[in-house]
Design a protein around this nucleic acid. Sequence first.
DNA 1: TACTGGTACTAACACGTGTTAGTAAACAGG
DNA 2: CCTGTTTACTAACACGTGTTAGTACCAGTA
Lengths: 344, 344
Amino acid sequence: MPLSKRVTSLDVAKKAGVSRTTVSFVLNKVPGVSISAVTRNRVLKVARDLNYHPNEAGLRLASGKSRTVGLILYQSPEQVFADALLPQVILGVEQAAIQHGFHVLLKAVEPKDPTGYARLIGENHVDGILLSGPRRDDREIIRLHREGVPIMLMGQLPNTDIPFADIDATAGAALAVNHLIECGHRRIALITNAPLSYTSARQRRAGYLKALKHAKLPAERTLVKEGAYTPSSGFEAMTALLALSARQRPSAVFVASDVVAVGAMLAIKSAGLRIPQDIALVGFDDIPLAEYFDPPLTTIRLPAYGLGWAAAERLIRLIRGEGLDQHDLLMNSEIIVRTSTQKS
Amino acid sequence: MPLSKRVTSLDVAKKAGVSRTTVSFVLNKVPGVSISAVTRNRVLKVARDLNYHPNEAGLRLASGKSRTVGLILYQSPEQVFADALLPQVILGVEQAAIQHGFHVLLKAVEPKDPTGYARLIGENHVDGILLSGPRRDDREIIRLHREGVPIMLMGQLPNTDIPFADIDATAGAALAVNHLIECGHRRIALITNAPLSYTSARQRRAGYLKALKHAKLPAERTLVKEGAYTPSSGFEAMTALLALSARQRPSAVFVASDVVAVGAMLAIKSAGLRIPQDIALVGFDDIPLAEYFDPPLTTIRLPAYGLGWAAAERLIRLIRGEGLDQHDLLMNSEIIVRTSTQKS
DNA sequence: TACTGGTACTAACACGTGTTAGTAAACAGG
DNA sequence: CCTGTTTACTAACACGTGTTAGTACCAGTA
């Protein structure tokens, strides 16, 4: 029974003996209209007594706004599973949205099956889009942006002017490699977090190369191996590095993902080598378990929660038509030094 | 400009030279009404040409349905951060929802700040609620259920008849302990995944006790320690176990969470003991990294993705008024035997 | 010819809200 | 006493859809 009888503003109006318009004025505190204190209090009381909540659909229809952001996860299931920081990002998005009175609609999109998330906009389902893991071959997002739809990327899309919030992965990677250089290493290898066709992998490699160049160390192609999200890819990449001749073999490796680094560590230990005495290791991400690896992993800590928070907050600004103080946001990371680089 | 001009069904009707009603009949394939093939094709073509998508708000208002499920994460931020399986669960929910034409609205609720997710129902924002991590002190959910709101729990709520989908954690825990018994262990300790005030912790302990009883082994209070989501809690709990006298000290430990187990492993190794030779270890969850712990962790694999999928699918059944084949769903887990229990 | 019944539509209402334009009463100023 | 202004409201429209009741037409039948 209670399900069939939804309380509407008309019910409130009737019971309070006023018009529906007055109810709307009171509850929305519309500026510029005067309502007597007696009436206002009566309406408020009745609304509370009846447990009135404005119907979302009616509200959207009348206002044309949905006060909802679409959080699009443009990632394959394997990526999602392996992404240990995803919960933090999502939570950051959620809490920023709540703070601004917005809701979050979650949508996972598989790259191979680009079922248009654009429909969410066309259907007026969301006011703006937060796109995690943008792809270069995604024409849809560019079209939407050109049409004036509020969009915020988490990650970057080269050759577009779509605003984004992202970790400054290049700087973070440089931090990692600089640390290794300061530890005295000269032959430093790189295992990427993902295939180099991904922007995130490119950025981290750029930081690696930058740090080497700054220290006037040569960059050798043989010292760069591709990982792909998983520990096993790290195992293989490291195995390949260990197969190099004694002269070519690196004394330290920057693995651009903690998860991939786990596999690399296993390869090193399986080969009977010690970390950091024989090979030092720096990871990237500072996932919650990195501190408990054996040995504890020196790594780059990313503000995952903060990234989600900032991205959502900036998107909501766009939706509201407020300007952004800066078009793009690059967040700083910090290095967390642990045993995997400290010859204690 | 394109933003200001949304295409409505009236636009389609005008351009096709028919009434709006006809457009609705054609696009919704309403049974029992006859439309000539010529007209139908004309309408379909125009709709495609204009890139028409029905406005979500109008649709909701007219139909009274939102075709959206609310995924409520009733967990503290620390829990969310530590939950390595959460992405899998969320993805399962998402994909089941998509498959049935539903959307997912995500809402994180902090236990200490019970800002009513019930409003989502009152506002007609969602058709049903998927509650992850239900709490005993949550009066709201019981009220909603009594009012006939479709609800599905992920986890269980004793003393209520709210339908749920959950892992059979008791059976899973028994699996773990049985394995240790089969390996010849007689003194088996338990480190819980969470404080015992949590249902999930209770269930896992129940499986532990059941397995001991079945093997006619005594259950000793001194061998049960509480963990709390984090590796550090596992470290402390294990340290306490190691402090027991040589006679009391366990030869094997069931840690009811892989994440907590990481801390326990560190404590064991720090004490100069070996796994599994001195102390064998079984975890719970089979998080993606468990395979890469040192040593690889024997653990209980949970169908996290499947749980999310099944829970969403069952909720949608409830929303549609279809019955459930069974009121509750308990999903099976399996044991994954690795080195932490195999004296190889 | 008149009636029946099916085909192919359309007019009009309902859903619940925000908002603009307008009105009656009270009040203030001359 | 009349006029203009403020106060405190309300009637009516708009938003975009689904749906019920009804209409015009035509073919077939008695």
